[in-house]
Design a binder for these strands. Structure first.
Lengths: 238, 238
DNA sequence: ATGTGTGAATCGCTTCACAGCT
DNA sequence: AGCTGTGAAGCGATTCACACAT
């Protein structure tokens, strides 16, 4: 789930008893890999493969076979020893796990540069994520069309997402309004947010957040190039 | 003494996947957080704050103060005990660490829907990542303009990136050609790749890759909504 | 009194290795 | 034989807790 959940960090002075953290939840990393396996299986289906091994799934994704088997084992036993996995069955199983066996209505907040691109982003629709409405608060944009959708006033969010039964929102607004927008989304009934604003957003427990921060990723590349052959931990203080 | 050391490993597994002897490398997670701290400090600068504590940096990013201090400690001692960090100094220090004190020329491969949006994506330019040329292999796109840039034939990649001294490429092409494109980019001298194609790509050691996979992120939201209140690890086996 | 810097303890993810099924 | 499913080991990342600096 989200890395930006609201976190209550209590000062635990004398933690004598070992606190049972109840960490039987599946890790975030596992869920992301499941998405990769899912895509691998889609490709295997297209290639009319009937059977696939954990080794092959791993190789195609740069992972070990053990990792693949362990990930799947959190949800059940889908393979057959000595044979591998049925492509069709595993594909269906993962689609159920990820909730991709159905469609999800989605709304987009922010009809700017990124938002507009996302309306035309085919992969969302292909996996069943259907952008049903677009919101903005700029009067110049409200009423205009983005793709085949009309831009609505953000203040109309509540009735419109109720009407379309929307639980997932894509947020592509400037950083300085992101938290305010998110608060209103949660208040309107949104339960999951894909955040493109380059800032940490906070949501109540029970709401999921994923961040898509392109600036961070390219900065990691800059770091990789800058630190080539250097040892970290050198003194840079001036 | 124990005799077990002479035991032979008959099981010599062919461990093909990444054998990265991690050692004293700074973790990826640390680098990504550094980017967040950097943005936090930019905001603090705008707000004309002079000093900031690890507690505040952490709170603004949903992290513990200890995490912030530990991350920074990999690179040096930037703070002053009892006082916190100088906003200006820490900002400059992190920009040096991440390589953001300079500009980077970047090329974009794939003038489709996403690629076009990225040309107009302000955050890249603001952090010094300048898209200098755009490539595609579709004859219908070559020669046309994307923003203020002309789309070049991908086969011209080598001379053009040499001329502009480009080491970073943004790849926004369909999955089925992504690996081929990446191979040619590496061959042409690219050392860092931001990959938007929804597939794992493989590069030689010494080349950095970051993946930006929006479908994976939204699928994680679908999972979060689907698995609400359910226990994973339910018994499906007999 | 305040808040950093950092070993030590802890947590949790990944990999190993093998039992067990086909 | 071939390959999965899974406890246990291994190990990297996070958190704790406190000495130390201002």
């Amino acid at each position: 789930m989200a890395e930006e959940q609201t976190k209550r960090k209590l000062r635990k002075k004398n933690a004598r008893p070992k606190r049972q953290k109840a960490s039987n939840r599946v890790s975030d990393a596992t869920v992301k890999r499941l998405s990769k396996y899912y895509r691998t299986l889609q490709n295997a289906l297209s290639a009319e493969k009937t059977t696939i091994s954990s080794e092959e799934i791993g190789r195609l994704n740069g992972l070990t076979a053990a990792q693949v088997r362990k990930d799947l084992s959190f949800f059940g036993a889908f393979g057959r020893r000595g044979l591998g996995y049925s492509v069709v069955d595993l594909h269906r199983a993962i689609s159920r796990i990820l909730g991709l066996h159905r469609t999800w209505n989605v709304c987009l907040v922010g009809a700017g540069n990124i938002g507009t691109a996302l309306v035309h982003f085919k992969q969302f629709a292909e996996q069943g994520f259907l952008i049903k409405c677009v919101f903005d608060s700029d009067p110049q944009k409200i009423g205009k069309a983005v793709g085949s959708l009309k831009v609505h006033d953000f203040s109309q969010i509540k009735p419109l997402i109720e009407e379309e039964n929307i639980k997932i929102a894509v947020v592509a607004v400037p950083a300085f309004v992101a938290q305010k927008v998110v608060d209103q989304l949660v208040d309107a009934g949104i339960r999951a947010i894909l955040n493109f604003a380059p800032i940490s957003i906070f949501v109540p427990k029970g709401v999921a957040v994923r961040n898509e921060n392109m600036a961070i990723e390219i900065e990691a590349l800059s770091y990789a190039l800058s630190s080539k052959g250097q040892k970290p931990r050198q003194i840079l203080t001036d």
